[in-house]
Nucleic acid binder design. Structure first.
Lengths: 191, 191
DNA sequence: AGAGTGATGGGACCAAGTCGCATCACTTAG
DNA sequence: CTAAGTGATGCGACTTGGTCCCATCACTCT
């Protein structure tokens, strides 16, 4: 595979994050991102489906890991234990470099509706992925939905905490999931 | 307020839903929707922020009702009971007309990523709304987040069920929320 | 040296969305 | 009854996201 200036994709990600931070997401054109990365608009769209996706790269990989984590859980383990396996499984992707860019990335996303939309879709996708993987191991649909939703909540919370304190994401996520579980178990119904 | 052909907004909604159903969301241009409604593109964008929003109208009203439902819950009521109040509060917007269009609307949304994105954002917005309203009545942040997330899950499930069986949405949502609560309480942790 | 391959550049093109200005239907003051 | 005012609409120019097609370049392998 021929290539002259390597890492076009990474250059695009860096350029985009820089520009979004400097001048805002809406005030940045795709052509400008490409230009700063030494590329053109055409090439940008060969690497990313749209303008938003440059901030959400590599999440297909997460889906695979989530599935592996759930289907790899012990035979008799309950739904939430399998979800814990999923969260631990994705920890390998939470590198130091990702942590370094995390806060800026979150700030950009928080400041724009289009990006929050994409983020919400990604999270919903994670939940759906986990639901399907849980059902495949025999978990009832309702239980799967509840466990997956709580898992995504723990994932979001864990991500935020991990950005602050660092360390092994698996550890952090395990703790946030347990916190969420306890809180959920303590909720009282109407009566 | 001057106006000659009334109900421009409703005409746009109907035209959009029809066209999306007939020929798909992506194959439909905004100008085409406007044309079928006897209007122009400009006017369309005066009524809806973008092409997606025509399928999600009136959800600002839902936010108000959710807040009212939560802050109107009895003094000592727990987080989930307040959430139940929120779901019951929005029942007034679940009219027969909405139910008639519901299935087509859901089918269109399910068939397109942009629309699923918008849907995911709306749901996330509902959750955020409920979290804030819960915190305002003294619920701890974690408990609020868990209760809100389960509430949105129950809302989604309740909506689907209500489209099938009809009746009072409040009743349906109350039941789905209780189901979700029981399932959540039964989840076992890792140990 | 020459054919093949994968990544890139470039430009035409369409649709979403914005903007400013003119216009029309209708209301209300005089 | 006329004239000014108001809100909704029409219109056209413009920017940008996104698609498509084709040429080109760097590199590999035979």
């Amino acid at each position: 595979m021929g290539r002259w200036e390597p890492d076009a994709r990474e250059r695009l990600v860096r350029a985009a994050l820089d520009l979004f931070s400097e001048q805002g997401y809406e005030n940045t054109a795709v052509a400008q991102i490409a230009e700063r990365a030494g590329l053109t608009k055409s090439t940008y769209f060969r690497h990313f489906r749209d303008k938003r996706e440059v901030l959400f790269g590599g999440q297909d990989e997460l889906v695979e890991l989530l599935i592996a984590g759930i289907s790899g859980a012990p035979e008799g383990a309950g739904a939430l234990v399998a979800v814990e396996g999923a969260l631990v499984a994705i920890a390998v992707t939470f590198t130091e470099e990702r942590r370094a860019n995390g806060p800026r990335r979150l700030a950009v996303i928080a400041g724009n509706d289009e990006l929050r939309e994409r983020d919400a879709l990604k999270m919903a996708g994670f939940a759906r992925t986990m639901v399907e993987a849980l059902e495949r191991r025999g978990v009832a649909e309702l239980d799967a939905a509840v466990a997956a939703e709580l898992g995504v909540l723990a994932l979001r919370r864990g991500y935020g905490e991990w950005l602050e304190v660092g360390g092994d994401f698996g550890e952090v996520a395990r703790r946030t999931l347990e916190e969420v579980r306890v809180a959920a178990a303590a909720l009282e119904g109407a009566e």
